[in-house]
Computed example of a mutant assay.
Amino acid sequence: MTKTALITGVTGQDGYYLSRFLLQKGYRVVGLILPQRQSSLAKLGSLVNKLEIYAVDLSDSRVLSGLLEQVQPQEIYHLAAPSFVPDSWNDPLATLDVIAGTTTRLLMAIRQAGLATRFYQASSSEMFGQVERSPQDENTPFRPLNPYATAKLHAHWTMVHYRQRYGLFACSGILYNHESPRRPTQFVSRKVCLAAAAIKLGISDRLEIGNLEAKRDWGYAGDYVESMWQMLQQEKPEDYVIGTGKLHSVKELVATAFECVGLDWTRYVVVNPNLVRSDEHFLLAANSKKAKQKLQWQPQLSFDNLLEKMVLKDLERLQNGTIVTSVKS
């Protein structure tokens, strides 16, 4: 029997890689998008022709319940969320509803429809926030530092409560930073890679950056979506920390990306204090021992190869004229 997977946030970075992965597994893949975001389907390219797409208001519990009864998914991957953390300060209440409210409505819909659907909640390392030790595992206390992280924590605990109280097969992946050529340009990884490519081609002459000493645990999104699927194939639902466990500074990120195109980064990079995050954290690194043991999951693409992949793709886009964007700020 063909399995049906439903993905919220299907046009995002993770939605794309997860859709591609599940199609290769022989799944029927149903993607949900907001009615006002239908233009974003273009980001899926030719993949969109292989998916079933529904434009749905995720704030409407009745509509969600009806859709689940219609689609009858064996698996739900709830990825929809505003992903750029600093923006959550602009509208904390909307951030809370989009992240935690939608999670709650989906869990309610599964229960009300009486489905045996397995549910994946996209949690975030941002929930750990102000950590006292590194690396972090599934038992590390949560101390969120921003509205995005707080909303993710609300959604995470709601998922846990539904699992414990109602016996739903619900779990979360606490994912660390994961990048790809499909990352939006406001994220530092893609911003740096695009700038390196633009400077190489003479389109730009500098890159403004914030804190060069900030460190991240960066991995490849294509690797991380496999862990989501693996979690829903287990005998019982559990939560897992997913990351590489290796910290790299923004300075290393910049140096490596510019090296991919044969440039000395120090000639082009300008530090702009206004770009420094006030809720910066330096010690968020994953201890993914549980995922490696129980899921047999391992990150495959190295930090250097990931950046090379991103820079070369941006070079291609700029040369083909398929991307026009500011890379200075």
Score class of each variant (00 low, 15 high):
L284Q: 06
D223Q: 00
P184E: 06
Y240D: 05
W265T: 08
P92E: 05
F303G: 08
D239G: 00
V192T: 10
R28C: 10
Q38G: 04
P86I: 03
L115N: 08
D239P: 01
V311I: 12
E252N: 14
S40H: 13
D304C: 13
L247E: 09
F21T: 08
V160Q: 14
V98L: 01
L247N: 09
A100I: 12
T256E: 12
H281I: 14
E138H: 03
L232W: 01
S302G: 11
I76N: 07
I242H: 00
S61T: 01
L93M: 02
S172W: 10
F142W: 06
V131S: 04
E75V: 09
L145Q: 05
L295F: 03
V270H: 04
L18Y: 02
A109G: 08
I53H: 00
K294E: 15
Q298Y: 13
P92Q: 06
S180I: 01
S326K: 13
S302K: 06
S288W: 04
M159N: 15
V254Q: 03
I199K: 06
S288E: 08
L168S: 03
L18D: 02
V271E: 15
N146M: 11
L64W: 03
M228D: 02
R317Y: 11
K236P: 00
N305T: 01
S61H: 02
Q296K: 15
E132F: 14
G66L: 05
M231F: 02
